[in-house]
């Protein structure tokens, strides 16, 4: 517990000095993107690693957050420090509704229905032209005035710290939930649904808590993304975001807080590095995912955990599939 906590602190300190050590706007841009993905991967990990279900529709919440921030800033003129939290809240509300429906399902049914929700939202975003401007999207999502005034490197630095703040808040919320009684209940359900029920855990309600926080975090990421790229279109619901999130969570190690953070940073770096070879890139990622699933089912954290004992206890246990009936 203290191990994971101090590693997280170390990462935060490193993150604080980074933008001053690196004045390169391109690297800072990558860091901001990595920050967005850290939040997204943390968010997805709550579902994959703690609810124990696999969501393919997580872009639903990212997209809702992005559209919410875009509309709140362009139509209502709200500043970024309001739009991003509100984007998270709105995504959380959608999380409650979508969770109430999907969390009654398990396994492949959950996967398919979450995917369907994301697809429905994409279709709505494309066709409800009055609200979303359809396929044209919402352009000119305003930058904060401070960013505009600060020049290229300065602007990136400001965005970097905003992203860092969002990452810190998100990790803090996830950390508190995971360590809380609800988090332990979620682990109990994931480990053994029947035992969990027999000690008084309501599997559905527990999953709702985790799912809703997960949606809030994805909404934050979406809201921030909208301001950062200053454009939001239906492609925020596209599957490639989802694919990246999955790779990050699996590669880093589901069921740990640190794993998805590592996964996000590494994958963003790798994607940039492999940018020259567009087609090959996806193939390589496919191979990486296969390798991870086959040889390191608990991701990097699982590999690390083979050594120090404190990590071994924190490491993501392989998900146990629940049997159909109590016996």
């Amino acid at each position: 517990m203290t191990g994971e906590r101090s590693s997280l602190l170390f990462v935060l300190v490193l993150a604080a000095v980074f933008p001053f050590a690196v004045q390169n706007p391109y690297i800072l841009h990558l860091a901001v993107i990595a920050g967005i993905y850290v939040v997204l991967a943390t968010s997805l990990n709550l579902i994959v690693g703690y609810v124990g279900e696999f969501s393919l529709g997580h872009t639903a919440f990212f997209g809702i957050g992005a559209y919410a921030a875009a509309l709140l800033s362009t139509a209502a003129g709200l500043p970024i420090w309001l739009t991003v939290p509100l984007a998270g809240l709105l995504a959380g509300l959608f999380g409650i509704v979508i969770g109430a429906i999907t969390l009654r399902l398990q396994g492949p049914y959950f996967v398919i229905v979450t995917l369907a929700f994301a697809e429905v939202l994409r279709i709505v975003a494309t066709n409800w032209i009055g609200l979303t401007n359809g396929p044209m999207g919402i352009a000119g999502v305003p930058q904060p005035a401070s960013v505009a005034a600060a020049g290229i490197v300065g602007g990136k630095q400001i965005y970097y710290f905003m992203a860092a703040g969002m990452v810190a808040v998100s990790l803090y919320l996830a950390w508190r939930l995971v360590r809380s009684n609800s988090g332990r209940a979620a682990v109990a359900v994931r480990e053994n649904r029947f035992v969990a029920q027999s000690i008084g855990v309501d599997p559905f309600l527990t999953a709702m808590h985790v799912f809703t926080l997960s949606a809030v975090l994805a909404g934050f990421a979406g809201g921030f993304y909208a301001h950062y790229v200053s454009f939001v279109g239906p492609e925020v619901f596209r599957f490639s975001f989802m694919a990246s999130m999955i790779i990050m969570v699996l590669m880093g190690g589901k069921g740990t807080l640190l794993g998805p953070v590592l996964g996000a940073v590494i994958v963003v770096g790798l994607e940039e590095y492999l940018r020259q070879a567009q087609e090959l890139r996806l193939t390589l990622f496919g191979l990486i995912v296969m390798a991870v699933v086959l040889f390191a089912p608990n991701g990097l954290m699982g590999l690390l955990a083979r050594r120090p004992a404190w990590l071994a206890r924190r490491a993501a246990p392989a998900l146990v599939s629940n049997q159909g009936e109590p016996a």
Binding site: E191, P326, A327
Partner: peptide
């Protein structure tokens, strides 16, 4: 509160 015939704990 009950236990299960098929050994059931949170094994990880």
């Amino acid at each position: 509160v009950r236990s299960f015939q098929k050994t059931s704990v949170m094994k990880n």
